[in-house]
Design a protein around this nucleic acid. Sequence first.
DNA 1: CGCTGTATTGACAACGTTCAACGGTTGTGG
DNA 2: CCACAACCGTTGAACGTTGTCAATACAGCG
Lengths: 242, 242
Amino acid sequence: MVALKSSERIALKIDKSLVRTFPLFEKMDDADTEALLGHSTSRRVPIGDAVFEQGAAATHFFLLLHGRLKVTQVTEDGQQIIVRVVHPGDLFGFAKALMRSDYPGTATAVAESIALSWPTELWPQFVDKNPRLAVTAMQTIGQRLEEAHARIREMSTQEVERRVAHAVLRLAKHAGRKEGAAVRIDFPISRQDIAEMTGTTLHTVSRIMSAWEAKGLVEGGRQKLTVKDIDGLSALAETVKG
Amino acid sequence: MVALKSSERIALKIDKSLVRTFPLFEKMDDADTEALLGHSTSRRVPIGDAVFEQGAAATHFFLLLHGRLKVTQVTEDGQQIIVRVVHPGDLFGFAKALMRSDYPGTATAVAESIALSWPTELWPQFVDKNPRLAVTAMQTIGQRLEEAHARIREMSTQEVERRVAHAVLRLAKHAGRKEGAAVRIDFPISRQDIAEMTGTTLHTVSRIMSAWEAKGLVEGGRQKLTVKDIDGLSALAETVKG
DNA sequence: CGCTGTATTGACAACGTTCAACGGTTGTGG
DNA sequence: CCACAACCGTTGAACGTTGTCAATACAGCG
């Protein structure tokens, strides 16, 4: 009993220092943080495993501590799209906060990941105890709505190459790892994934990226992607056609 | 003085009965409703006028009482898209609730409209007094996020004709006026508008709608649109290609 | 070592945009 | 009240981007 408690405390300590690096928690005091973490369960998610699936009852909400997830939706006719990529520090699986009872998408690990989870019933308590959480949640949702609109704008007005350029730049920004002058995307990503993020086919993505590689903008490979010339790619992304 | 007060009361009464027909207010008691309406200003918006403009400071939030608005965004290179259509009973111009200081789009009247407005500073008070409002707001935002994702899904996977069919069906549902077996869209809408809602050009929309008219599915006209065969159009919208 | 999933590339078709011209309707100002 | 401008819609033709189909190559894994 005592041994168990002690190991829990150690686990908590690790989590607390980890969690403290995220904007959401950086201004939270120790007591509140521990209270929150005390109700959480941490979970390891191997590559390819789903944290939750589209349509399932929303029993928990989550915080990604480590790794990388993709949130996908499947259309009635079986086509898949990637709604967003979840990075460490992001809250996800919010459904209940938006008054939904089920998850609108499936969250799958694309890299070995660790997530904290809380039962959705606790959400109101948390918000009560820490109003900052409510504000952050609102901000997050607002951002997502904006991102969605930005994506609609892109898909409405830009040709595929620019959309792919934007997507790759976003990935480099949120999941980039500097390697000298270049930036490597820090998790395995396929052409198919990029196609599903930009609303095109892997064929087109492959063609575009081959062209970029010839120009020295990027360096590809199986499930690998390195941006060698951020500025060059940015120029491509912002170019007014014509 | 006395006369003024009396006229105010009458104005309030009119608004209250009007407002009571909207889901947001139907379960609110008289005192709360009056408290809310007491702080509001009503405003007539002629066709073509904007309630607020993209990028302007978000000083108010709104409820549409009557008429119809379109919310648009303009891209850096000048292209316009319609983000959504605001129907009577909808809250809009929420920016502050999402922790934004400016409006992300422009709201323009496409029909003679009447909107109630409140200063954004009052939002927290309202939420405090009426938690149902917070819940509704959350739901609304959740719905919008879903709608945005649905649109992204459509644009990623469906060809233009199906997207236009979906858009028209949505309009018929939210702004339809029964005319025998047919449903007329209850406000002036151009091919250009539909193009901006579906991410295509007015030319393509015109071609598609001409084809539909030939098949007897719809009846068009200058700024007019009547769906004559909802089921036929639905079939088109749901058809699995191939 | 063969199998499976990923990537590359070419040929071709097609969907949708662009360019262009024209017709009709509405509303305005002389 | 009529003429004209401005706007909306239609339609044709040509072009191009992108999707589809298909074949091949390559890497990683059991």
